[in-house]
Design a protein around this nucleic acid. Structure first.
Length: 264
DNA sequence: ATGGTTGGTTACCAA
């Protein structure tokens, strides 16, 4: 089983790019974030034509939006409203009656890493706290679970290009990393990507648009996009890929797709 | 120390 997560930064603008990726990688399930479209404008037919007959998405005008497209059957579909807001950042479904899949888009958090003066940063911290509370340990005992998405936090020193410089930059501040790790401990999530890549190796999934011409050489990336699995699924982990080269395609998203292969 | 780009929407906001 092949699973992809990708912050697409407008699914309507980049639908041809998504189709090209699907042709090359042939995943069974794809999770998108920042679809940036109300549901009635979601380009569903393009996915159906590629065999993704099962789907679950929720979107809104201009911002946010998450989608699960699947070749395998989905049931138990849910939309999760978080921290009292109606933005579209967390959906879930059971895939092929085998595991519960959560597609999550954690708020970016604005510029100033101080919840007292920056409501967006407060929103981000509250969002992670709520997720930590919402996934209790008992859940992972009964059902295998996978959580994917743009978590907008790079937790490890080698998940950013310069750990010291990034300590005051939203996405890598100590308070975010602390809350991120508490979330990760909530059901003993396994970081499925780092499972294959040692922690002393630099690894990124996002490169800012603000370094467009030399993003590859400068390589000032961050690992913001994640795939986690519960312990029961750890023996099934087979392979990971971050499709860095797609960041260099025409009109790219600033995020690269992250792929996980699991044995059936 | 600062500015740099993109997308949705159409004067800025969010990332």
């Amino acid at each position: 089983m092949r699973l992809v997560t990708w912050n697409i930064n407008s699914v309507r603008l980049r639908i041809e790019t998504v189709m090209k990726m699907l042709d090359k990688q042939k995943p069974d399930v794809i999770c998108l974030q920042e679809t940036k479209t109300p549901d009635e404008f979601f380009p569903l037919d393009a996915f159906k034509d590629k065999g993704f007959k099962h789907y679950h998405f929720t979107g809104m005008k201009s911002y946010n939006g998450v989608a699960i497209l699947s070749k395998l059957p989905l049931d138990q579909v849910e939309i999760h409203k978080r921290v009292g807001k109606t933005d579209c950042r967390h959906i879930s479904a059971r895939v092929d009656k085998k595991f519960e899949l959560h597609n999550i888009y954690i708020p970016a958090g604005g510029y100033e890493p101080d919840p007292e003066i920056n409501d967006k940063f407060k929103h981000k911290l509250d969002f992670v706290d709520e997720l930590t509370q919402w996934f209790p340990k008992e859940r992972s005992a009964s059902t295998p679970m996978i959580a994917v998405g743009d978590f907008n936090i790079a937790p490890l020193e080698n998940d950013v290009w310069d750990h010291k410089k990034m300590l005051k930059v939203v996405s890598h501040t100590p308070i975010e990393v602390e809350k991120f790790k508490k979330f990760q401990d909530s059901v003993e999530w396994v970081d499925a990507v780092r499972h294959f890549v040692p922690e002393d190796k630099k690894l990124y999934s996002w490169w800012s648009y603000r370094a467009e011409e030399n993003w590859d050489a400068a390589d000032k990336g961050r690992r913001l996009d994640h795939i986690w699995v519960t312990k029961k699924l750890k023996p099934a982990l087979k392979k990971q890929q971050i499709l860095r080269e797609l960041r260099g395609w025409e009109k790219p998203s600033d995020h690269a797709p992250v792929i996980l292969d699991l044995t059936d």
